[in-house]
Computed example of a mutant assay.
Amino acid sequence: MFFSTSTGVLALAATQLFIGVSAQLKTCTNNSTLSCHSSSKAPTCCYNYPGGALLQTQFWDTNPSTGPSDSWTIHGLWPDNCDGTYQSSCDPSRAYTNITAILKEQGRNQLLSYMDQYWVNIDGDNESFWAHEWGKHGTCINTIDPSCYTNYTPQEEVGDFFQKVVNLFKSLDTYTALSNAGITPDSSKTYSLGDIEAALTKVHGGSQAYVGCEDGSLNQVWYFFNVRGNAINGQYQATAPLSKSTCPSSGIKYAPKSGN
């Protein structure tokens, strides 16, 4: 894993966990065009289009609480059309609902265990949540289309997608970034949007993140990237958010999770 806070470039090598399987994504060169930066607007296996901006999104759930009390949780990885609009549910034929079974079949048990702790549904139905995120957003990432693999194995892109989202999430520790700036969950304290954004900029390669609130309480963070190459082992470059914060400029609550 490589992450440079000076350039905002994140390059994560995809880990193939299959035994005896040689399938892999087609190779992209280092001079591949950065997504959202081409006038040709033609999708290839090395150019994310139309969803050229990829968002690693996170939750802070408190009512009810989900995940560890000292960590945010995963929402997903969303392709955005570089302008705040997006496609959804792009391939119903690959809208798989048996994500657990797919990951187990691929030998990704460690990944599955991590997801059960950090990629959790507020209603307790993790499987449906994962299926929703894959069907709505994952199937719209064109650079992980089955045609972009050599020796393709069915559902291989599903495992690659979930592993990539987890890798990105691990590199973007929102709780620690805020805590290092003195911004911690508290039942009475409030914080300013500027301070929150400044703290997250440090973990996001110098680029601002989107901060979301509900009823004045902090509840979501979205980290925007452009990608050079495919979405699995390409280089991720942090970029400014395409959406405006839903938080007030001051008086933002950061409620503790239950038991915190």
Score class of each variant (00 low, 15 high):
P92C: 10
G107N: 13
S6M: 05
Q106T: 08
N151C: 03
I102C: 00
Q110T: 14
T139L: 01
K253I: 04
L168A: 08
S171M: 13
L111R: 09
N48T: 09
T139N: 04
T201E: 13
H132M: 10
Q208R: 14
N233T: 14
A177F: 02
T97C: 00
T174K: 03
I144K: 00
E157N: 13
G229W: 08
F129W: 05
T97K: 09
W60H: 07
N63K: 14
S249L: 10
E157K: 05
W60V: 01
S192C: 00
A42V: 15
T7Q: 08
P248R: 15
W78D: 06
D173W: 05
V9W: 05
D195Y: 05
T176M: 05
Q237W: 12
G194Q: 01
P146G: 11
Y175K: 12
D186T: 06
A53M: 08
Q56V: 15
H132F: 11
D186I: 09
V165W: 02
T97M: 02
E197D: 04
A101R: 02
C140H: 05
S258T: 10
T150G: 06
A53H: 06
L34N: 12
N260K: 09
K136V: 07
F224G: 05
N142S: 06
V166G: 04
C82Y: 07
S245G: 04
G20S: 01
I232M: 13
G212S: 10
Q56K: 13
A95D: 11
C140M: 07
D80L: 08
E157S: 03
N30G: 15
S65K: 03
D83M: 15
E156C: 06
F18K: 01
F161R: 04
G67W: 04
F3S: 02
Q24F: 03
C28I: 11
S243H: 10
P256I: 05
S179K: 15
N48F: 00
D195W: 00
V158E: 04
G251L: 09
K189I: 03
L25F: 06
E156D: 12
S65L: 01
K189T: 06
G216N: 10
D160T: 12
S207V: 08
W72G: 00
S69F: 00
T15S: 06
R94K: 13
C82W: 10
A13H: 11
S69R: 11
K202N: 11
V221M: 11
Y47Q: 10
D195L: 00
L77Y: 14
V221P: 06
L34H: 07
S217V: 10
N121Y: 01
T100H: 02
S245H: 04
Y118F: 08
S65I: 02
V120K: 00
F129V: 05
I122P: 00
P146V: 12
S69L: 02
Y254Q: 04
N167S: 14
F224S: 13
P185C: 08
A209I: 03
T85M: 11
G8I: 07
